[in-house]
Design a protein around this nucleic acid. Structure first.
Length: 194
DNA sequence: TGCAAACCATAAC
DNA sequence: GTTATGGTTTGCA
């Protein structure tokens, strides 16, 4: 059965929906209710679930991963098993692409679109429905003019996340994909404009 | 700057 | 099928 686990760490609420060793959704916010709502929104109506107070080791580890990312740490997440397969094919492609944006860099909606296919607005739609924040770093996707763009948790939160990810890079980077390239830019390009 | 038109996958009807 | 809806982008005054 699907398990929901919420935990407050350093004044921030983190939550994960999981079954066995697979993650179905994650969320974080300053409010417990907001996290719960966000998780539930991602689950199909017909799946049974329960909120737990005695999380598995796996759940605890996932939460601490969320906290690391929230704090701007460069923690590896490649080993985490995300339940992407139920999502539409294009959505999966976009999410996997965004997963490649490294800490310290941002991509634009348009550059993600060029790498994953489709258009910039379609990418924005996928970001808005990202079930795995901040695991899939949708906060690292911004406008082509380095304006902030939107964020589910609010513009202020997006800014804070990006500030903690500053690494002092100065040059754009072209990440090679199978059939295209994903161009990313130092996060400073965005912060400088604020 | 500001505005209009083009863009494109999804979900809802 | 069709329409409405965006976390956009680009061009042009």
């Amino acid at each position: 059965m699907m398990q929901l686990y919420l935990q407050n760490s350093g004044g921030v609420w983190f939550g994960v929906a999981y079954e066995e060793k697979k993650v179905y959704a994650t969320a974080f916010s300053h409010g417990e209710q907001l996290v719960l709502r966000s998780l539930l929104k991602r689950l199909p109506f017909d799946v049974p679930f329960q909120a737990v107070t005695n999380p598995s080791e796996f759940a605890k580890k996932t939460i601490s991963l969320l906290k690391d990312l929230h704090d701007g740490k460069d923690t590896a997440i490649s080993h985490v098993d995300l339940a992407l397969e139920t999502l539409p094919a294009y959505t999966q492609r976009v999410l996997r692409t965004v997963l490649l944006v490294p800490v310290g860099y941002v991509a634009s909606y348009g550059s993600v679109a060029k790498a994953a296919g489709g258009g910039a607005r379609a990418v924005g739609n996928v970001m808005a429905a990202n079930p795995f924040a901040p695991l899939i770093p949708c906060h690292r996707v911004v406008k082509s003019n380095f304006g902030l763009g939107g964020y589910g948790g609010g513009a202020a939160l997006k800014t804070q996340l990006l500030m903690r990810e500053k690494r002092g890079y100065t040059k754009p980077l072209d990440l090679p994909l199978d059939d295209a390239v994903l161009r990313v830019f130092p996060v400073e390009f965005v912060l400088r404009r604020l």
